[in-house]
């Protein structure tokens, strides 16, 4: 069930658009902000408030890579794997992350702390390689710096 604050936020979005359905992505974002990921129940909650079917909502949700339909950790690492970072050595960052965290892309550390995901170009190619942890951008990264970056997130 939607919490009061989720509901309020979604209703605010609904007022901005000509048809309820148009608030679908916003509603998914709101649910994800509150619950970190969107479960089947989350899909049904969004469907109910927007008067859509779960199928309609999930069709949208599963299209976008940053709507998480599986549980994720407390912190999300988005490692840029696009071209400038490729040239500037993201594979080394990737290897180091895999080693430090003991997980592959798409997985979450057993303690639920990190989920590691590849992400297309972060738009900071002049400072490649780069990654984001949650809302923070890290640029010009060397593998050796990773440990201290991760240490900031508990």
């Amino acid at each position: 069930m939607l919490t009061t604050s989720e509901k309020e936020q979604i209703e605010k979005e609904i007022r901005q658009v000509p048809v309820k359905k148009a608030a679908c992505i916003e509603a998914l974002k709101i649910v994800q902000e509150h619950r970190r990921w969107v479960s089947d129940e989350g899909i049904r909650d969004v469907a109910d408030i927007l008067e859509m079917s779960p199928e309609e909502v999930d069709s949208v949700a599963t299209f976008y890579n940053l709507i998480f339909r599986q549980p994720v950790g407390r912190h999300i690492i988005l490692l840029c794997d696009s071209i400038s970072c490729y040239v500037m050595g993201y594979p080394a960052l990737h290897r180091q992350l895999v080693q430090l965290l003991g997980i592959q892309y798409g997985q979450t550390t057993p303690d639920g702390r990190f989920t590691l995901l590849p992400n297309p170009c972060l738009g900071t190619c002049d400072h490649a390689p780069a990654l984001m942890v949650d809302h923070d951008l890290y640029r010009d990264l060397a593998p050796a710096e990773l440990e201290s970056v991760l240490a900031k997130y508990t």
Binding site: P54, D58, S59, T62, F63
Partner: peptide
């Protein structure tokens, strides 16, 4: 409906 994207698109029900 249709779910997912690129060459993973899937046509069916939610469950």
């Amino acid at each position: 409906n249709v779910f997912a994207a690129h060459n993973h698109v899937y046509f069916g029900r939610q469950q």
